[in-house]
Simulated assay, not measured.
Amino acid sequence: MRYGWLDEYCLSKKAAEKDFKVEWNATRYLIGGKMFLMQGGDKNKKAIATMKCEPTFGQLLREKYEHIIPGYYMNKEHWNSVYLEGDVSDDILKQMIDMSYELVLNSLSKKKIQEIMEGKSEEV
């Protein structure tokens, strides 16, 4: 995989968590229990990472880069997949990860966002 920094970068996000979804054979990166990035493979087992993007920005990226496609097995308007052996620059991929994290974070409740920003964790 070309983007060896991907795991560390995703986990460097405040309160980011990682799990592995066996039935999808995919690693997920979550904030507040919601996924902001999924790393797995397509039907041909080619490595991909799928992230949420603003629809207009995602469309622009898909038009510019052949290795960015509508979200694989996701909502095609809001999610985009990047082939990890492709030609997308590190900067663009990081921008996509940052956007996905922010979009998912901001979709959480105000209380949950406040807990994350203050570094509080839920007592179990």
Rank of each mutant, 00 (worst) to 15 (best):
3 Y>V: 12
3 Y>G: 09
4 G>P: 02
5 W>Y: 15
5 W>A: 01
6 L>F: 14
6 L>E: 06
8 E>H: 07
10 C>Q: 07
10 C>P: 12
11 L>E: 01
12 S>R: 03
12 S>N: 08
12 S>C: 12
13 K>P: 10
14 K>L: 14
16 A>G: 12
18 K>T: 02
21 K>E: 02
21 K>C: 00
25 N>Q: 14
27 T>Y: 01
28 R>K: 13
28 R>F: 03
29 Y>R: 14
29 Y>I: 05
30 L>T: 15
30 L>H: 15
34 K>T: 03
34 K>C: 02
35 M>Y: 04
37 L>C: 14
39 Q>M: 02
39 Q>H: 06
40 G>V: 04
41 G>R: 08
43 K>T: 03
43 K>S: 11
46 K>N: 15
46 K>V: 10
46 K>S: 06
47 A>L: 13
48 I>P: 14
49 A>V: 15
49 A>G: 15
51 M>D: 00
51 M>I: 08
52 K>D: 00
52 K>Y: 05
53 C>Y: 00
53 C>P: 04
56 T>D: 14
56 T>L: 11
56 T>A: 13
57 F>K: 13
57 F>Y: 05
58 G>S: 05
60 L>Y: 00
62 R>T: 01
62 R>M: 11
62 R>K: 07
62 R>F: 02
63 E>W: 03
63 E>S: 10
64 K>C: 09
64 K>E: 13
64 K>L: 06
67 H>W: 05
68 I>F: 12
69 I>K: 13
70 P>K: 07
75 N>S: 04
75 N>Y: 04
76 K>V: 07
76 K>Y: 05
79 W>A: 06
81 S>G: 10
82 V>A: 13
83 Y>E: 11
85 E>P: 00
86 G>V: 02
88 V>F: 04
91 D>M: 05
92 I>R: 14
92 I>E: 11
96 M>K: 06
97 I>Y: 00
98 D>I: 11
99 M>T: 12
101 Y>V: 11
103 L>A: 06
103 L>N: 12
105 L>A: 05
108 L>K: 09
110 K>Q: 08
112 K>H: 09
119 G>A: 04
119 G>S: 06
121 S>A: 05
124 V>H: 04
124 V>F: 09
124 V>K: 10
